Each structure stands twice: as structure tokens, then as C-alpha cells.
Simulated assay, not measured.
Amino acid sequence: MRIGYHLSSAGGFFKMGETALRSGADTFAFFTRNPRGGAAKALDLDDAKKLRTLLAENSFAPVVIHAPYTLNACSDKESVREYAREVFADDIARLEQALPNQYYNFHPGSHMKQGVVKGIELISGMLNGIITENQTTTILLETMAGKGSEVGSKFSELKSIIGSVKIPGKIGVCLDTCHVYDAGYDIAGDIDGVIREFDKEIGLEYLRAVHLNDSKNPFGSRKDRHEKIGQGTLGLEAFRRIVNHPALKNLPFILETPWETPEEYAEEIKLVRSLEE
């Protein structure tokens, strides 16, 4: 099992790797800049090199780097879409320079009453303007809970985005367990059925990472509120099935649960590892 959690990048790249190791993690996630937007700090390439060495020496799975929440590639406002394009392109360029061969995860966006079809068109248009054949970063579309006008709560919507991308080999999906459950995919009660549907709609070859989260909400609520593993409506036994499922068990698992300290995440990592069969 490869598992980690979201870390603060305030102390630099290498510090994140050291913290992950001390927590018993062998992958992790971090935001490229403030999750609510803003400028990214200057790159320290020597620090990034130290992290790359640590990742290689400790056989880490790919790091699942997260775009800011404020990106909305399918907004009804051109200024918001332009901001998304600028930040997205800048993030990819910075990752290629500092941390190549990792994953860059983002929320597809909200269509703001323009309709799902228009939203998909705008999202794929942005991706086609940024993705290149020679980039090493794999871009991950995150499965969403479906609140408001979010795009990506249905596998068919992610399928349409991927199908519209001209270089699909540079794109994949991050499956969020809380989000898909809140969206109406019963990953707690029928994980085999959910995985079959994912394979039928999108293809398992595109499934690259898992956000491992319990949910505070009932099934199909479309609300998106994460809970600690085993303390929500999915329940601990559901996570035993999830982490041991053949289609998922070799993927990087990223905890986005509401703990606050590395010590608390270290305990949750131990809990999840104890479920491995």
C-alpha cells in the first residue's frame, strides 16, 4: 500500500518529504500555492533536487500535487477562465522544472448555469491549450460530489472531457471516495459495481490515484464534507474493501481527512495500513 496525506509546503520541498517519512507515508500531496489562490513562491531548485533524491531513495509513489480550489476552467466569466489558464500553465511549467514525473490534480470546475456540455467544452479547451507531448506531469481530473453546478460528479462527464483532450496519454483521474459516495456511486456497499462502471465509462487505465476520505453526509447527498476514516457514513469496513480492491490497491492513496497534525495523520496511516490483507 502507498499512502500519504496533504502537507504544508511552507517549509519547502525537502521538509515535506521528511515529514511524510516520519509519518509512515510513502507518497503525499501539497498545494502548488494557497488553496484559495494567489501567487506561488519562488522555486528553490536545490531544495527540489533534495526531495527528488529522497523520493527515489525511499521508493515513493508519485506525489499527487493539488491545484488551488479557485481554478474554474468553465466559469461563465472570461477573467476567471483566464486566471485558471494562467495558474494551470504556470503550475505545470514549475512542476516540470522542479518535480517532474508527478501528478497534478485539479477540480474540473463549475459551469455556472451554462450547462454541462458547455462546461466540458471549456475544460477540455483549456487542457488542449496547455498539455504538450513532452511534458512528464500527468494531469488528474478529480471525481466531484456534484454540489451546485460542478462538472465531474458523473463518470460520463469525465469520459467526455478525456475524449475531447487531444493528448489523452497525459491525463488521468483521481477518485475521491467521499465525492463519489456523495455523488451517488455506492463505493461503500458495492465497490465492485462502481469500479465496473468506471471501467466501462472511462477505462481503468486512466485511474491513477485515490483521495481516501470518509463522508459526513448520507449517500447521494451531493454535499462534499470529508470525515476521518471509519468515522463517517462509509464506515471502516468499506475502507477495508477499498484499499484491498485489485483495481485500487497499487495506486497512491491520499488522505484528506480533517486531522491537523502529522502525528494524527501518522495514526490514521497506521489504521489504514492495518486494513491491508
Rank of each mutant, 00 (worst) to 15 (best):
I131L: 14
Y181C: 00
H179N: 12
S156H: 12
I120W: 11
G193D: 03
A188T: 08
E201I: 05
R196W: 11
F155Y: 11
S160C: 09
K154L: 11
D182Y: 04
S149L: 05
Y181N: 00
E133W: 02
M112L: 09
E150T: 12
V116L: 07
D192A: 06
I161A: 04
S160Q: 15
I167N: 14
I120G: 12
A188S: 15
F155D: 08
S124W: 04
D199T: 11
E150K: 09
V194H: 00
A145Q: 06
K154G: 05
D176S: 10
S156V: 10
I191F: 02
E157T: 06
L175E: 07
T138G: 07
S149A: 13
G146W: 08
I167S: 08
I191V: 15
T177K: 00
I123V: 15
T136D: 03
K170I: 07
F198A: 13
D190A: 10
V194T: 10
I120Y: 11
V165I: 13
M126P: 03
V180Y: 00
L175A: 11
E133I: 06
I120Q: 13
I187A: 04
E142N: 06
I161Q: 03
K200T: 14
L141M: 13
G129A: 14
G203A: 02
I139D: 02
H179F: 00
T136N: 06
Y185Q: 06
D199W: 00
D190H: 14
T143H: 10
I187F: 01
S156Y: 08
G172K: 02
C178L: 02
E133H: 09
H179M: 07
G146A: 12
V116T: 14
H179Q: 09
D199N: 15
G172R: 04
